[in-house]
């Protein structure tokens, strides 16, 4: 036996909100046609929905938009500084790479200049003329003895300074 149709409050809200399936919607619609006295309930819901829709939005304090924009501009300026800082870092990194290469070059040259392990097996006329590098003179020169450590020290401090500055800036932005 089929249950009698009961039009609940929630069903009416769903009808008004357009949540019902086409079948349910038709059923409610037909029920309302047969029971016009129930239309007042639907009208009350429609009034309530209108009241909701007409509720004014809350106003933020005066100058809110200006504060947002100031924060945005400040954030942008911070990002630009970081980007600019990163640009400078690339210069520093390039110099460091060049310095590293300069230090590694003698080691590389050792391998290039003494490649053969059994040179006595190769006729002398086929052996390449290996360059003679004055290692003792290079390493004993004042530039290498005093200049290199100073340059390395300078770049070490520079790296440390850049790292600390970036860390400080990131902490400031995150705060």
């Amino acid at each position: 036996m089929e249950q009698p149709f009961v039009l609940t409050e929630d069903m009416l809200w769903d009808y008004a909100d357009g949540f019902l399936s086409p079948e349910e919607k038709t059923r409610v619609h037909e029920y309302l046609l047969l029971h016009p006295e129930q239309m007042s309930r639907l009208d009350a819901i429609a009034d309530e929905k209108r009241r909701f829709a007409s509720l004014p939005t809350e106003r933020p304090n005066a100058g809110f938009a200006d504060r947002v924009m100031a924060a945005w501009v400040s954030e942008q300026a911070g990002s630009r500084q970081i980007v600019a800082g990163k640009g400078k870092d690339w210069v520093v990194y390039s110099i460091a790479a060049a310095m590293g290469l300069f230090l590694l070059l003698p080691i590389l040259l050792i391998f290039i200049s003494a490649p053969a392990s059994a040179t006595d097996l190769i006729p002398a006329e086929y052996l390449p003329q290996t360059p003679t590098i004055p290692w003792t003179e290079i390493f004993n020169s004042p530039v290498m003895r005093f200049g290199m450590p100073l340059v390395l020290l300078f770049f070490s401090f520079r790296f440390l300074d850049q790292y600390l500055q970036q860390k400080k800036m990131l902490a400031k932005l995150q705060a």
Binding site: T57, E58, R59, P60, F64, A65, V68, M69
Partner: peptide
């Protein structure tokens, strides 16, 4: 955009 939506976002 901030001016247009500040009230909605704030509410």
């Amino acid at each position: 955009l901030v001016k247009r939506y500040e009230q909605y976002a704030f509410t």
